[in-house]
Design a protein around this nucleic acid. Sequence first.
DNA 1: GTTCTAGAAC
DNA 2: GTTCTAGAAC
Length: 769
Amino acid sequence: MDTDSIPEEEKRRVKLIVVLLVGPPGSGKSTFCNHVMRASSRPWVRICQDTINNGKLGTRAQCLKNAARALKDEKSVFIDRCNLDRDQRAEFVKLAVSGIDVHAVVLDLPAQVCISRSVKRTAHEGNLQGGKAAAVINQMLQKKELPKLSEGLARITFCQNNSDVQDAICAYSALGPTETLPGGYFGQKSPDAKTQLGILKFLKKLDGPAYPRPDLCCPEGSLSNHITQEMQTRPEGVGHASLLSGTHLDLKDRKHLAAESVGAAVALNSIGDCAAFDNAPTLAFPSISTADFQFDLEKASEIIVETVLEYANKLRNFRLVLVDLTHKSKILSLVKAKAAQKNINSNKFFTFVGDITRLFSEGGLHCNVIANAANWRLKPGGGGVNEAIFTAAGPMLEAATKEQAKSLTPGRALVVPLPSTSPLFSREGVTHVIHVLGPNMNGQRPNCLNNNYDEGCKVLKEAYSSLFEGFLSIIFRTELMSAQRNGKKLRTDQPELQGHNDKFQENGLSSDQKTKGAIIYEAEKNQKCKGYSKYKVGLVDADSQGGKEHQDLECDGGAAKGWDIWAQSLYHIAMHPERHENDVLESFCDVAVVINDLYPKAKRHVLVLARMEGLDHLADVHQEHLQLLKIIHETGIRWAENFLQDDASLIFRLGYHSAPSMRQLHLHVISQDFDSVHLKHKKHWNSFNTAFFRDSADVIEEVSRNGKATLRDDESLLSAELRCHRCRSAHPNMPCLKLHIRKCQAPFPPPLLQNDRLVQAPTKASANP
DNA sequence: GTTCTAGAAC
DNA sequence: GTTCTAGAAC
């Protein structure tokens, strides 16, 4: 974005950032910068010492000079050099003056990875390639000194694998010109480590707030034993978090904070699995209705665990944290016990003792969303969590809330994006507050249910479902905003879809976090449906979707569910893209994965896989997956457009097979030349050129309107006569058809030219209305 | 999803 | 001889 296009008043608020990339050659520093710069709406300058001198190696002084010049031009800066030790970083840290933050992004990938990348390079800017790379990198890593906040850095993000890198790219890509990221340590790494430390070592050596590992259950007996022993000797109320935050913190100055695994029975598969959740979107929530509203604790804990269980498998990478101020909290013990019984994944759900308004600053637990046990008037005061949150957030929370709704009914949740000026945002990294109103059993408070627990349990369940739905929708909207920031808008002129777009723009992480439309989340009342993001704009009546034949989307943990082994390869790639690095073209913000079709049926044919359990095929798609469908669509469009840059003569169609052979929802992005040796059978042709193929834009429209897509999976479509997709002429067999389509240049049938079903180069599109 | 095979149809 | 189809195996 050109700074000239930023309005004057905005310009004054532009928040500049200097990001020092820290990592040896081959760690992906330049790639990181390029990804962010391509996707970001903020102006960036990449300063690379390897090329700064007219394309040749330059000096640190030149880098500094260029950085200062870029900042003067109100451009944020990437310092793309190794920056491996403190001295190398020091001069750049001095660029931090008023209004300019200096961050570090540490690309701490295994040395072998960096060496292997460097060895393979053929055109590295610094001419470090081939065999000498290994020696140089090993030498450099000997001197590595991980950065610390005390050097003067405002934020340090540690990336230890590709997934961490992707997350960091997303975080920086999503930053508008006036935004910044919360300060502190992100990711987990002891700044004192020279090499990858054993996990216990690095947990004990953190020198500042970092994510604690409350959920730590190590498969190796030695570690868990060690921790158990330490817990036995620590002062009461001081849990893992304090232990993990290490010896540099004065425990006396801290409130007693304890993070506790609620699923201790579940051992993690590997330490890597723990790390995957460190940067996951996290919702911290208090127990609803059990304090002032005097709801029965036993029943409440049952409902919490039951609802968490339903949501825990809906998305791969997020965390839910039940928070209470006191270690002796009965509700925490009850929930802990019940969650352990149910074997809930302790990465995704755990309890935490602490002040919900100071989880990061005092407990090192970063939660980007917190829930408020609100009152029906959505007003501050009244003590408890409500008063604490309104006080900590400042008056802007009341104003932001008021803009959205004046009151809340029991069982509902209201998502309020927090203005970036709020201390909760800047200090704790909280981007949204979700107000929740639970059922009341206290005669001294409004809407008392007089011990009617049939109704009470129903309402409490709705309250938690609404809360979790609100949280998941924030994740989806954030992903979508990120997609839109890539400079592409959803390709649809459907008024209904446009409306959804507007909603996202209003309620996503906009630069000033302002919102207009109110989104009230309500639980799906039909217990048969386990959908999770049904939302409506404005204050709406709670109505049931009643009678809809929703499928149970519960996760099966990877079981075949009737799919043969050969049909599961896409599923495995979607669930574990890190294990298929050679196949994965792009992993988009943990939501979608792009791969080449193994047997492409055209010159260009890629698949966009949904990274969500339980979405085996189009039949599993419902209203709650709308955002995901849009992200997949957007990703597909982006790939089509990339291909068009290479070959403007191509035309793409995006869609789903009504009844795919392979498990895991996947979007086909396929060029319409159908020029491929793999296109052999009638079934191949008809699966892309009859109603069996459902255009992505139509699917989105149908799901948005009807909550599901129309499927045309009758076998007769696949065995229908062969017809050219352009001129509709019939052909006796595949060779004849293939001969014909090679030369047929007839315009596409009118239905294909509507609703953006075809993606083509702009000049072609205008010539082919 | 693919490959392979056998037999039918042309 | 070539193409198509269906079924089995993976």
